[in-house]
Structure formats: structure tokens, C-alpha cells
Design a protein around this nucleic acid. Structure first.
Lengths: 307, 307
DNA sequence: TCACGTGCATCAGTGTTGCTTATGCACGGT
DNA sequence: ACCGTGCATAAGCAACACTGATGCACGTGA
């Protein structure tokens, strides 16, 4: 049998759990079945994929492990795309968003949606960027909001997995978070290139990821001093206020954070951009919400980007 | 059994062939098996996917058909990535490139490779952009060259399928192809925005695709008068010279085409960019070739872009 | 209108696959 | 050196995925 998603799932599980038997119980199989799955994969590719005792990927296994999540995601996305055609609730909307992506403009559009959709059954879910996209693709959410830094009116470089539609929801000034007593805190603006050697907090789920800053500045640096996972903006702000490092967030949001001096980024010319992402065949409520978000942006209505 | 690549393959084949029995003979199955495959898929997703007599996708089937090629490609890419770890021939290099992507800079790098690699077993394959990427991913080629239009030193927006490494190979002036007797043929430069309403040839395999021009100009227009498929540059030039429409190509190349007045594009600020693409784990020869291409670009060595 | 042909669906039969349980075996810890 | 943990292997069995034969619906032509 040729590389079969089933086998891939157990492959990933085994390496996740670092154990054949643990993977078996997670997947509801016997240990023997898992052993046979891995053996089948290895026979198919005629390479050893997993080193046992300790359980770890071989070089070939590492390559496969790089492909597997995308494959499994795509499979789920295809399935979700089809089931969405049948189960579409006109008043139910599940919105997944990255922490800094739900700004005033989007919130107003949500309020507007509530006025037009009488019993609006809204569920909001705060996730990291990747998880937002994953939720939208696999049907966990009807619509998603992701944010990032980009040149004005440039699209965000989102991973392109499956047919989704992306459209600009908001663009705000980008700001760097300084502690109030920082020498640069009183400045009217800063240049990012002057901060490449500063200490940063790498908070990829909350603030602009540091590798993104490196990319837009075309510069090295931005070395993390603290790595901050999770979607807690105030925790991040507390760290930044206490001088653990810098982080980049949209100015309107950053200005409200306690203990923080938010200084706009002057160069390179960047904005904090929020994009709304939904499947190519959105649910009824998602479509209406997307219309509201874009309608309020006339006259300079951003163009839909079909990836 | 849950959505299984095997079933997806027959699904795609059935819609390709518009016939169950034709798909069966193509795949080496009996018609009965194909029928059962489709029935299994439809049962799994509990939706009708294909309308019979005539054989055509239902809306749900159309959605699945949108996902299926990417899935099957990713599967092949994963397999190719792993087999590449074992079968790596140090003197064998298969290069796939889009027609306008093999410019003087790359050709010189190839010549240089020949001096360092004694019996160089080189195979060159000219393909459309998508096919180049597909070949690189599935192991059909060790390395690929794709071209496109972008702002200077901006990366090309390539579909992101699987782990590949992309690096800039060349940037040349972009030119529009006019017939020699065209009123604008004598101009020193043109602005693309002035040509949105002109008649264009849509030659996505050869010249810059028109939807790309629309995207970089942020403008509508660029309506095709002729659609030209295939990788024949001189055929395209003949059409352009005869006044069938305009096309965009790199200036050094366009200047050599018979009957053509190649006029540089002045605005928006664009270049014809060539990128070299190879798998995250390249073969020996591919790695050496990539090194040559980038080394000759010192001092302004472009940065690697890992997608 | 009806008979016929084409082409997908369905059925029964069979070899193969993919599980389970039971047992073997190798390595690591004490 | 022993034992315990954890993956590999073997045997058995149920479910599956094919083939070949047949059924049936629709489209076609006189």
C-alpha cells in the first residue's frame, strides 16, 4: 500500500510521543499495529525512518516529518471544505484571531453584523497565527484574522495551504514597545534598523515575529532574549515594561498597554496589517462579515487576494 | 478506509477522462473498481461528488478537485525528498527552467560548473513555471529556474508547496515587446500603466503572465487578445511582431528577438527576476550549481529565502 | 416509440491487507 | 547477572479491495 495518511498519522504520533506504545494508546491501536505501520512506511520508502531506543527520527525520517503535517492538514482542509457545503448555519459565526488582530475596525464590523443578523451566535477564539489559519482551513473556525508587518498595502506573506481568500481588514501604525524609563521611550519615532542589536522578546504568537522583522528590514539581528509563547498580550506587555526586551505591536493597541511607551516605527515604511482569511467557500455568516469588513473600507477598498 | 490518496487519484482520473471506464483503463483497474472507489469517497464524505451521464463534478466534487492535485503533489514531493537522500549522483544534474529564465548569468554559472565537474551529465528541460516547480518538488529535476516580474530585490510570489529553498539568480530590465512599426516602438521607455488598455498576448508559460502584471501594477486591464500556451519564445515573438498583442520579457532576451522592438519598462519600478529553486535537501550537483550562481553575485549577494 | 448499445452500478467470489493476541528478543538499569 | 521495559515478530482472523459477471438506466437512431 502506498504512503497512506493513516501511516503518516501514526508516524507523526510515534515521534511526538517518542514511543511506539504511547502512540498506540493515543491512536487507539495496539503497539503491534504501530510497529507494523512504521515497518510498512519504511518498507515503502525502503529507508529506515525511525531510530529505536531511543525513538528518534533518522535523517530520512526528519524529512518526512517536515512534510507530514502539511499533508495531514491539507487532507483535513479538503474534508472540511466539502462538509462546509452542507452544514452552514446562517446565524452561527466562529471567529479565530491572533491576539493583536482584533482591532477597532473589525470590532465595529462585528457590531454591525449583530445588528443585521438577529440571533447572532458568535464564538471568538484567540490563537497563534498558524493555528488561526489551521482552524480556518479545517473548519474549526468560519473566518480568521491574522496580523503581521508589511509595506503599506502589501499583502502579508501567509503560508499558502489550500484555497483561501484573504482580504485586508485594517492597517495601523506599527509601534515598538519600550519600558517607560527607556532612553528611546520619549522619541516620536524610531527606525527598526537602529534596533537590530537591541534585546528583543520573541513572541511569535502575540507580537510581530522577529524573523519577520529581519525579513522586512533585510537585516540580521533582532536576537531574542526571551521567548514568549501563548496569546497573552498583557503578560507580554509586563515583560516589555520590566525591560526584558522589545516587541512590535500596532500603535493603537500598544498605547493602551500599562507601563509601556509605544513609539511608532518610522523606517522602513511598515504598517501593522490585519488580514481576514476565509475558505474559498465561506459560510453564510462569514461571507456577510467579510462584506462588512471590506465595505467600511471604501473608497480604498483593498482587493481580494485569492491564493 | 479514510480519504486515501489512491481514491483521490482515481477521482481525478475519472474527471480528467470524463468517464469511469476510461479512467479504469488508464489506471490499470477494472471499471468496477473505479465505480467502487468513487462510491467509497462519496460514502466517506457522505456527498455525491460526481454526476454521471454525463460525468461531471458536483459542487462538492469541484471543491475536492481543487484540493486533490495539491495533495497528490505533496505526497510525491515527500517521497521524492526521501529517495533523494539515497540516490544522489554527484555528476548528474537535471535542470528545469521556464523559457525566459535561462539568461546569460545562469548560463555562465553552468559553464563554470562544467569546468569544476569533469564528466558533467547535464539535462535541461524547458517547462512552464508551475511544471518547473512541480518537477523540482517531485524529483523530476534537481534544480529549477523560474522567472517573473517583481519590484527590485523583492522575491517572486511562488506557490509554497513543500520545503524548498529559493534564491535570486538574476535581475534584468523588464521590456515590452512591440512590433517594429508600432507608434511606441521608438520610445526609450514605457509605463505599464499606460498599456493597461492595450491588446496583450497572454502567454503564461513564456512571458510574464498578465495577472501578474495586473498585480504588480495594482490595476485592472491587460486584457488578452491571444492566449498562447507552450514554451516557444520565437513563436511568441512572431505573434507580437505581427501585431497580435503585447508581451513582457527581460530586455536582453527581447532585444534579440526578430521583428521586435523591445522597450524597457520605466514604471512601476519592476525588474525581470530569475530565481533558482531547489529542494531543501539538494543533490550534490545542485548544491554546487547553486553556490556558483550565488557566488558570482557578490557583492550584493541576495539572501536565501526558505519558504 | 421502441429497440439497441453504451456505460455505470451491483453482486458474488477470492486473494490480500490490517488488525488483534501472544510471544520473542534486545537493551538498560540495579 | 538478573529483571523489566519496550519494540519486533508470528499466527490467526476479520475486513477490505480487487476481478469477473450481470443488472440496469439512459441516450441514440430508425
Amino acid at each position: 500500500m502506498h504512503v497512506n495518511p493513516h501511516l503518516l498519522r501514526t508516524f507523526v504520533a510515534v515521534l511526538d510521543q517518542r514511543s511506539f506504545s504511547a502512540a498506540a494508546s493515543v491512536l487507539g491501536y495496539t503497539q503491534s499495529a504501530v510497529s507494523q505501520h512504521i515497518a510498512a512506511l519504511e518498507a515503502d520508502l525502503s529507508t529506515r525512518l525511525i531510530e529505536r531506543r531511543p525513538v528518534a527520527p533518522t535523517p530520512a525520517g526528519a524529512r518526512l516529518l517536515e512534510h507530514a503535517p502539511a499533508l495531514l492538514l491539507l487532507l483535513d482542509a479538503a474534508r472540511a471544505d466539502i462538509t462546509r457545503l452542507r452544514h452552514t448555519h446562517p446565524t452561527r459565526l466562529t471567529l479565530a484571531h491572533a491576539p493583536a488582530a482584533l482591532g477597532p475596525a473589525v470590532a465595529r464590523a462585528l457590531a454591525q453584523l449583530r445588528t443585521t443578523t438577529h440571533p447572532l451566535d458568535l464564538e471568538v477564539r484567540v490563537l497563534g497565527r498558524d493555528a488561526v489559519i489551521e482552524n480556518v482551513l479545517t473548519g474549526g473556525a468560519d473566518i480568521g484574522l491574522v496580523d503581521g508587518a508589511a509595506a503599506p498595502s502589501d499583502p502579508l506573506p501567509l503560508p499558502n495551504l489550500g484555497p483561501t481568500t484573504t482580504l485586508a481588514a485594517a492597517e495601523e501604525t506599527l509601534a515598538v514597545l519600550f519600558p517607560r524609563d527607556h532612553p528611546l521611550a520619549g522619541r516620536g519615532s524610531v527606525r527598526l534598523i537602529d534596533l537590530t542589536q537591541a534585546q528583543w522578546i520573541d513572541a511569535p504568537d502575540t507580537a510581530i515575529p522577529l524573523d519577520r522583522l529581519r525579513a522586512v528590514c533585510r537585516a540580521d539581528g533582532f536576537h531574542p532574549r526571551v521567548r514568549h509563547r501563548g496569546t497573552d498580550l498583557h503578560g507580554l506587555a509586563a515583560l516589555a515594561a520590566a525591560g526584558h526586551g522589545l516587541a512590535a505591536l500596532p500603535l493603537p493597541l500598544a498605547a493602551t498597554l500599562p507601563g509601556i511607551a509605544a513609539v511608532p516605527v518610522a523606517a522602513p515604511r511598515l504598517v501593522h496589517r490585519t488580514e481576514l482569511i476565509h475558505p474559498a467557500n465561506p459560510t453564510e455568516a462569514a461571507r456577510r462579515f467579510a462584506d462588512l469588513v471590506t465595505d467600511r473600507q471604501v473608497p480604498d477598498r483593498p482587493q481580494d487576494i485569492v491564493r
